[in-house]
């Protein structure tokens, strides 16, 4: 069976990402301190002043909020499309495995690369983030706490999170989305640097606005 067959049986988002994440956890720009990466986020919070924490996470949040990222992290069952984040045409919905309902499976249209001819976007393991990783409408504090919550993020520690955002081809697609789609505005190397800075600081989350 070819690789498409594998897509159909692939486990949801988190597990797929973790599998890809095994190996060297590093970014070319900023090697990660493993000890810091596994540091307890709450403990880190105590060490960092709230203002500083907010500063570190805010460039990360800006990227996460880009339509290329956010469109596949809805808090409902509808993937979004376009810079206006309209619900995916054709009534496409999540399905039990985040890979689409009957007939509207991601792989019915999306391949492992952008179509040069039709404009249909594609990347390996094209799928919707699980509902627990829905970000739409979240403020920085909630977005951050959702991100680092292992109960929600598929059991990822900070290192795995960084790895996901630094290496996962589906995440990287956000910078090369093809067609007339707007790429994530922060250049990817800069994003990884910012992400690593945040992780190196113990992945501190800003406090929710009162």
């Amino acid at each position: 069976m070819g690789r498409h067959r594998n897509f159909l049986t692939v486990l949801p988002f988190a597990i797929a990402a973790v599998v890809i994440g095994i190996g060297v956890i590093a970014s070319a720009q900023a090697p990660l301190d493993r000890n810091l990466l596994i540091a307890d986020a709450n403990a880190a919070d105590e060490k960092i002043a709230p203002a500083k924490a907010s500063q570190l996470f805010s460039p990360v949040a800006a990227v996460l909020r880009h339509p290329r990222c956010m469109n596949c992290h809805p808090r409902d069952d509808r993937p979004r499309q376009g810079d206006d984040r309209h619900p995916h045409l054709q009534n496409i919905v999540r399905g039990d495995d985040n890979l689409g309902f009957v007939n509207g499976r991601c792989t019915a249209c999306h391949r492992d690369e952008n179509s040069q001819h039709s404009g249909v976007p594609g990347a390996p393991t094209w799928h919707l983030a699980p509902l627990s990783m829905g970000w739409q409408g979240l403020g920085d504090a909630e977005l951050c706490s959702t991100l680092i919550d292992k109960e929600k993020n598929g059991g990822k520690d900070i290192a795995a999170l960084v790895e996901h955002m630094a290496k996962d081809p589906l995440v990287l697609w956000g910078w090369t989305p093809g067609g007339d789609r707007t790429p994530v505005s922060t250049p990817h190397p800069q994003f990884v640097k910012e992400l690593t800075a945040w992780a190196d600081a113990g992945a501190p989350c800003p406090t929710a606005a009162k």
Partner: peptide
């Protein structure tokens, strides 16, 4: 393989 797909893609 038994699943509906768009053959144009």
């Amino acid at each position: 393989d038994g699943e509906a797909v768009r053959s144009c893609q």
